[in-house]
Design a protein around this nucleic acid. Structure first.
Lengths: 154, 154
DNA sequence: GAATGTATGTCAGACTTCTGACATGAGTCA
DNA sequence: TGACTCATGTCAGAAGTCTGACATACATTC
C-alpha cells in the first residue's frame, strides 16, 4: 500500500492532490444534494442562473465545466420541469437567455444552504491568510494551464 | 457576464475555484493524452500500477477516484489488450493483484512524460514555498471534507 | 462452530457526458 | 455584396461512469 520506491512519487504530486481534493468536494456535494434530488451539475446550473440571469446555454456550459451539448440536455429537462424558462425565439442571433422560474429559485434555496455548509466545512481549520493564499495559488494554476494550450505562444 | 451584485459571490468561492482548477488540469491532461489514445482514467490506472504493483481492482478504483465497477470495465479492456495481467484465481480471498505487462510499461512511458509536462506547466510561476503551501492547503481541504462525512462525529 | 459484518469481483441496466455533425446568425474584410 | 470565420442551439449516436444486485471470502464475535 505504501510507496514502493519506484520514484514517480504520486504521493507528492500536486496534480494528484488537486484531483483528490476536487473529488472529495464533489462527493461531499453529492451527498448533501442527493436528498434534494439534485446533481452537482444541476445545482451549478441553477446557481449560475441565480447570480447571472440571462446566461445562454453555452455560457452555462462553460460555467459548469461541461460541454454545451450536456448542458443542453440538462436545460431541456429543467425547462420541461418548470425550473427554468427560455424564450421560444432569439431576439438577436441564436442566443436564448435563460431565467430561473419562482419554482427554480425556491428549489435552489435549500441547495445553496446545503452546499455552503460543505464549503464552510472544507475551509474549517484554515486561517484567512491561508484561504487567500489558496485563492491565489489556484488562480495561478488555472492561468498557467490555460496559458500554453498546446500551441507554444512563440 | 460580470457580477450582478446578487450576493452569493461565485467569483470568490474557493469551491468553485477548486473545481475550475481541476477541470483545467483534466482538460490539459486529456489534450496531451489523446494523441496517445489514452484517457485520464486509463493513464491513472497504469501509473498507479507502475508505482504500486499488485494493486487490486478496488484499490485502483479508489486511487483513480472512480467506482470499482468502472475500474473493472477498464481493467478488463486493459487485460484483453495486453497492458495488464491478473492471475486467473486469487491466492487469498477474492483479491486479484494486477501487474503491468512490458507492453503496459512501454505504453505508460510516453504518457508519463506528457503528463509530467502538464504538471510542470501548472506549477510554472510558483515558488517552492508556494508549492508546499498549496500542498498543505489541499491536504487540509481533503481532510476537512472527509472528516465529518455527513454524520456528526459527536 | 455459527452468525455477523465488511470487503471484494463481477454482471446488468440506467444515466450522464462526450464526440461528431448540421443549420443558422453575427462579425469581419475585401 | 459576397466570402470567410466564429459562436450558437440542437440532434444523434457512442463512450464512460454510476447504481443496484449477487455470490464469495475473510475477520470478528459469541
Amino acid at each position: 500500500m505504501s510507496q514502493n520506491g519506484v520514484g514517480v512519487d504520486l504521493d507528492k504530486s500536486l496534480g494528484y492532490l488537486l484531483k483528490e481534493a476536487s473529488s472529495a468536494l464533489r462527493a461531499a456535494m453529492e451527498e448533501v444534494l442527493r436528498p434534494l434530488g439534485m446533481s452537482v451539475t444541476h445545482y451549478s446550473c441553477l446557481e449560475l442562473l441565480a447570480q447571472r440571469p440571462g446566461l445562454s446555454n453555452s455560457e452555462l456550459a462553460r460555467g459548469a465545466f461541461v460541454t454545451r451539448q450536456s448542458m443542453n440536455v440538462l436545460l431541456q429537462a429543467l425547462e420541461r420541469d418548470g425550473y427554468v424558462t427560455r424564450p421560444a425565439e432569439a431576439r438577436v442571433g441564436k442566443v436564448l437567455p435563460a431565467q430561473l422560474t419562482p419554482r427554480g429559485r425556491r428549489s435552489l434555496e435549500k441547495a445553496t444552504v446545503a452546499v455552503r455548509s460543505v464549503e464552510v466545512r472544507m475551509l474549517a481549520g484554515m486561517t484567512e491568510t491561508e484561504q487567500s493564499g489558496a485563492f491565489r495559488i489556484l488562480q495561478s494554476m488555472i492561468h498557467s494551464l490555460r496559458d500554453g494550450d498546446g500551441d507554444d505562444g512563440a
